[in-house]
């Protein structure tokens, strides 16, 4: 009799507590976030800030491991192939994650991942202050007058900077001379030193030089103005080119699908309640010229997709795609 009551209580207990235990994930060993870029870059910085926030809320160490190489595809691949126990994540720009498949680098789609976005970055057209260009119009006129003469520094063919100048070139028909560097910061420094005249890298990477008046920002490559702490407002390029479109570039932490459901639920809860109010991330974004933009779930997929589309079709039109984007679920924007 007693025994059966005990069983009964146990059974009720199981029914009552099982879902709760299921929803709350308590990691028992350190979690690894693979940053597929070098230590110190913009992905690395924002990921480390986010990792510190997550550490507090998960009660477990979150270790950031840098696995740079092959435009970030190697580290991403390792995260994809790691055991699906929820202890290996990756981080980066959603538009890269979505376009590896088009470049034939990795067979993975954006929808294969749970996206936990933290900030969005926009590109800025910046010029060396010694150049005569005072506005986007000056620059475009000069580029039309001297095709392939004006040097533009970017972080390479898959970079946000190259996407930006390519989009401008498509919209206006200008021709420029593309000079590539190892990353956003070296590209910006090349413009500061005068080795190149123009850069179209992210605002994050130019912020400090803009504040110090070593780079003159001409416009945000997008349709919203950017408030930069210590400088003021940078107006959008749409003031000059009315129907110009450039979707924002979202960054975040990515967890491959197939991990236990409680991992995803716990992270979503943390994103909804903690990350969206994170002072550390807000402060980081404001001082670096990034937009604080936390998102997860379907919302995150919807936000990230336009940049993937733009990026993938830019590659396809430039002859760089190995797989046509529309065959892998990326329609033309």
């Amino acid at each position: 009799m007693l025994k059966s009551i005990a069983y009964g209580i146990a059974a009720v207990g199981l029914v009552l507590f099982a879902p709760a235990a299921h929803a709350q994930w308590k990691p028992t060993k350190p979690i690894t976030i693979i940053v597929p870029w070098a230590a110190g870059g913009s992905t690395d910085q924002v990921t480390r800030v986010t990792a510190a926030e997550l550490e507090t809320h998960l009660g477990q160490k979150v270790v950031v491991v840098n696995q740079p190489g092959a435009s970030g595809s190697i580290g991403t691949k390792n995260a994809l192939e790691a055991p699906k126990d929820g202890y290996t994540w990756t981080a980066g720009a959603a538009q890269d994650l979505g376009t590896y498949i088009v470049l034939g680098m990795l067979d993975t789609r954006l929808s294969d991942w749970h996206l936990f976005l933290n900030v969005a970055n926009v590109a800025v057209v910046g010029v060396n202050p010694a150049t005569p260009y005072k506005s986007v119009k000056d620059l475009l006129d000069a580029m039309k007058a001297k095709p392939e003469q004006i040097t533009v520094a970017t972080a390479g063919v898959t970079s946000a900077g190259h996407n930006a100048i390519e989009a401008i070139a498509r919209a206006t028909g200008i021709k420029y001379r593309h000079v590539t560097y190892d990353g956003g910061n070296p590209a910006v420094i090349a413009t500061v030193s005068g080795e190149t005249e123009v850069t179209t890298q992210l605002a994050v990477e130019q912020a400090e030089m803009i504040r110090a008046k070593r780079i003159r920002p001409l416009a945000v490559v997008g349709d919203t103005a950017l408030e930069l702490e210590g400088y003021g407002t940078i107006s959008p390029i749409t003031q000059e080119l009315q129907d110009f479109k450039a979707p924002a570039n979202y960054f975040g932490i990515f967890v491959p699908k197939g991990v236990p459901a409680e991992v995803v639920q716990t992270l979503e809860k943390i994103w909804a309640e903690k990350i969206s109010n994170s002072e550390a991330l807000k402060k980081y974004a404001a001082s670096r010229g990034a937009l604080f933009a936390p998102a997860y779930g379907a919302d995150a997929q919807a936000k990230a997709m336009p940049a993937v589309q733009a990026n993938a079709w830019l590659m396809a039109d430039g002859g760089k795609a190995k797989v046509s984007p529309d065959t892998v679920g990326i329609p033309r924007p």
């Binding site: 070098a38 230590a39 110190g40 870059g41 690395d44 910085q45 480390r48 800030v49 400090e208 030089m209 504040r211 110090a212 070593r214 210590g230 402060k283 980081y284 001082s287 670096r288």
Partner: peptide, 17 residues
């Protein structure tokens, strides 16, 4: 480079200013 990232994360912005 890593040291620079750490400074930025900690809210110290090195640079020309």
């Amino acid at each position: 480079a890593v040291l620079l990232a750490a400074m930025i994360i900690h809210g110290v912005q090195p640079g020309p200013l």
